[in-house]
Design a protein around this nucleic acid. Sequence first.
DNA 1: ATGGTTTTTACTGCGTC
DNA 2: GACGCGGTAAAAACCAT
Length: 328
Amino acid sequence: MSENVRTYTAEHADEQVETEDETETSADEELRCPECSGQLATDTEHGETVCVDCGLVVEADEIDRGPEWRAFDSREKDEKSRVGAPTTNMMHDKGLSTNIGWQDKDAYGKSLSSRQREKMQRLRTWNERFRTRDSKERNLKQALGEIDRMASALGLPDNVRETASVIYRRALDEDLLPGRSIEGVSTASLYAAARQAGTPRSLDEIAGVSRVEKDEIARTYRYVVRELKLEIQPADPESYVPRFASDLDLSDESERRARQLLETAKSQGIHSGKSPVGLAAAAVYAAALLTNEKVTQSEVSEVANISEVTIRNRYHELLEAEEGIAMS
DNA sequence: ATGGTTTTTACTGCGTC
DNA sequence: GACGCGGTAAAAACCAT
């Protein structure tokens, strides 16, 4: 039983990243403080992102792209409104390009003459052609559609799609695409984004909704992470707990116990090198046992996609760790 | 390619409903 | 007898070197 602190990298490859002196990292991937790796908080009042631990200002003079809220009457609404919709990375042109409405109405809402209608139709056609003119844009359009589709299938929230879009966009900008499929990079981006957002999906789940083989996803993922210097920590077992618990119709109580078990396991260092998914599954099973809720190992293995043997091994270790704490 | 570790597969035995 | 559970051995998968 060697006490090796090997990071689990099977489907969770996390590359070590040399931290450059000038931390000119773009805001879209910043999750942790570069100094003390503490939690970051956004101060919208001053437009700053600060570290709650050491107070380091990570990002200043940010632009708030959202609309001003709280307008009490129509006059105020006009004053406070900033023109246009908020930009989003989920559209290939950030939602900024011109779009010609489909309604054949003029600015006053009056219908157009048939001549004008024809003209507008031609304009729409050309506008669409220009909008997706060069290959990069078309590429992006397809990729974002793909990301959206997979994210929906996996029930991932919008912010994950946003992040995935950002990652993909960067990959495109850095010319990472040649030699790799659009689907592959889209999938890898989504996988990375899900993990960054703390709502990880296993490689198997991702592969299930992607057109690309698991191997290629893993390969591309590693490549993208390395090239873009994304910092992604090994998945936290606890982030799988809620999903498993709800899939098994377990009470909040046992979900809490499962987290607790994982906490003590972490403090004991039991978790290093083991599959986060397996750990989470075992914790959920053990917690259900402790709260007298009937769940079979095979049921847990089903929802977690983990073998029963692994669940057995892990949950023994979890319980031992728990007792070890109780003794001391 | 190799070696070390973890996970999976397959099989067996035990107790209970 | 089917089912849930535990254990073991060998194979496969995986990461690091």
